[in-house]
């Protein structure tokens, strides 16, 4: 990697100050994507602001929602009694990210801010009507993800926490890429009193997306059979070495069926 500055402030305000002072500075969360990128010399920021000392790793019950700090590690979400009770699907998702080492370093905020098209968390954010709390505002999930590796975050805007609505029922099922074990298709299904939301990750050329037809079908009948007659379009789906758009379309339907139990 290129040499760069590294600082670890103790508060979000100090962190914001620091990143602004840097020209092209970068927040460092768990570093699961950023550090490999730096090591491969694919990025050369003027400095790294490590926000692991900013007290952003709490999990709290907000009544209708669970609020999780941006720096909460996947392992902490997976092990949280609060999450396991209120949204077991979210704990399950966190428990299936990467491997043990990744889960003990990677963070919720880092994953969501990066919006990797194959990451698991964005599907939960979208399906669970989450609100992304930043240092300046609160952004609704439907407004947050704007494209592959793209989000509504402004320059130097920092995710502080994410509130996930509590569903009446939810599940996450993914089909891992055989090599990387990122989601080749991951489907988060969440049932609320006003309908069902289905968010698909790993498959869309524009990153995570909601699947309107499956949402409609499951809203009227929350049963795998309700999907049988649906033809899932392969348009706009990723094509790579491991899966054609047609195969991904098949997996979207299959993973959704498996999620609806």
């Amino acid at each position: 990697m290129y040499s760069t500055k590294y600082i670890k402030p103790n508060s979000t305000s100090e962190a914001l100050e620091a990143v602004k002072s840097m020209g092209e500075g970068k927040f460092l969360a768990g570093g699961m994507t950023l550090i490999p990128t730096l090591k491969q010399r694919l990025a050369s920021p003027d400095g790294l602001v490590d926000i692991s000392g900013c007290d952003l790793d709490s999990i709290s019950d907000e009544g209708d929602a669970i609020k999780i700090g941006a720096m909460t590690k996947h392992a902490s979400v997976a092990e949280s009694d609060l999450v396991k009770k209120a949204v077991p699907a979210l704990a399950k998702l966190a428990d299936g990210i990467g491997d043990r080492q990744v889960r003990n370093r990677g963070t919720l905020g880092g994953s969501v801010a990066n919006n990797d098209p194959s990451a698991c968390y964005p599907s939960a954010v979208l399906a669970l009507k989450a609100i992304v709390h930043t240092n300046t505002r609160s952004i609704e999930a439907d407004e947050f993800f704007t494209g592959m590796f793209e989000t509504a975050l402004e320059e130097n805007e920092m995710i502080e926490a994410i509130s996930f609505s509590k569903p009446t029922k939810a599940n996450y099922v993914k089909f891992p890429n055989p090599a990387s074990r990122y989601a080749m298709v991951g489907v988060f299904v969440a049932q609320f009193n006003d309908g069902v939301r289905v968010a698909v990750t790993g498959a869309g050329e524009g990153g995570v997306f909601r699947h309107a037809e499956m949402e409609a079908a499951l809203s009227s009948n929350y049963n795998a059979d309700a999907l049988s007659a649906l033809e899932i379009s392969s348009e706009g789906l990723i094509s790579d070495l491991h899966a054609s758009p047609e195969y991904r379309a098949n997996l979207i339907k299959e993973m959704t069926k498996r999620a609806v139990v």
Partner: peptide, 10 residues
Amino acid sequence: LTASYMDYCM
């Protein structure tokens, strides 16, 4: 194209 463990499946 399979020059890392992201794409080469061990």
